[in-house]
Design a protein around this nucleic acid. Structure first.
Lengths: 203, 203
DNA sequence: AAACTTCTGTACCTATGGGTACAATAAGGA
DNA sequence: TCCTTATTGTACCCATAGGTACAGAAGTTT
């Protein structure tokens, strides 16, 4: 379970990356350890040397995602500091999908949809991820509010929840329809709604 | 493949219903024919007598859903004829989720999230379902527009897409967080947005 | 009631899933 | 260098997935 050499860390990382991609592509239930082992060019020995079980791997995959988000090394920029940024935040999700010809959804949403009663740990991992993402959005709205650029009775928490839910739904529909259209319109509508909360400058 | 007796039709229906429930609960990939057979108290013989394969069953499950929606015999009322109706439409989704202690998402969204390149038929089945649902929403918006109760430049199609995407995202987040809160707020925000398209009465 | 069809039950089959066991290497550290 | 720990490879294991084959029961048709 422990690692001393760089070699080991590299193979482990490779497995995590390959697994993350397969999970995104076809979901975690449909992805077997074997497939991950083959695709990563490693062996069964390594797999169970580095991960207790399949669930252990899923956990590590999500942890890696989380870390990428918090450290800002993720594929997508999760930091929002302006309305332009927020729009980019929405559009970045669409771009991700487009990169896969609209054949995939959100990496987290995909996993989230598969969880059942037995996957309590995974559910919590996902929750943490969404909590971090939400916080970044909340931070922006709080800042705007502090500068009185938002109506003073808005609920920043709900605004963030709305952002996340709409983008998740948009991506899901985008995947099902294999079209960017519904995603684009949903993003547009969502943004248009959020901007109504901008404070009307006094005179 | 054909059926002459009521007895046969009943067992087949039973299997479809049990399968639909299991798919909703744990997804289609995680549900094996065996599990459906056991839970429905039937046998392997029947299963492959009535369905060509697992995929064939999935198809029939979705067809049954579709029929329930079009004939209005579905668990939920998909007809929207007023704004109150639309609100009920949104809330009905939440109620469905609540009935399962927020441990399940949308029956269609759940299946939709699992589709991959190889499930083209299933994807099309789902598309048909969402198309029918969307049409019911569009019909309402068109009607409102015809009565000049909507601003005349609104895009009814996009409004419907927005409805579906938001409720899908809301339900997904509700399932992941196992909480009705995000669902409720997303619904509220969505409705609030849609109502902004209501025409301002001339004086 | 014969002859057909439809329905149901059981036995079997092969591939894969998720793992364990264990030996062989490689790589450091003292 | 020798000892220890990390890493890798291979072989095996049992349960399940998804399905086929086929025989027998039940229902129809004539």
């Amino acid at each position: 379970m422990k690692m001393k050499s760089v070699r080991g860390t590299e193979t482990k990382l490779k497995m995590i990356q390959v697994a993350a991609d397969l999970f995104h592509k076809q979901g975690v239930v449909a992805t077997s350890p074997e497939e991950i082992i083959d695709a990563s060019g490693t062996g069964k020995g390594q797999f169970y040397h580095y991960f207790k079980s399949k669930e252990g791997l899923i956990h590590e995959v999500l942890q890696t995602h989380l870390e990428a988000i918090t450290t800002g090394t993720a594929r997508m920029d999760y930091n929002v500091e302006s309305w332009e940024h927020l729009e980019r935040w929405f559009l970045a999700h669409l771009e991700l999908q487009k990169a896969f010809q609209m054949r995939r959804g959100c990496p987290f949403g995909t996993v989230g949809n598969e969880i059942t009663e037995k996957d309590e740990l995974i559910r919590q991992d996902l929750n943490l991820i969404f909590e971090v993402v939400k916080n970044k959005l909340v931070t922006f709205f709080v800042q705007e509010k502090a500068h009185r650029r938002l109506q003073k009775d808005v609920n920043v928490d709900q605004m963030a929840d709305f952002c996340i839910a709409t983008i998740q739904g948009a991506m899901l529909m985008g995947k099902i329809k294999q079209s960017s259209r519904p995603v684009e319109t949903t993003i547009r509508e969502a943004l248009s709604h959020l901007k109504r909360y901008v404070a009307i400058p006094k005179r």
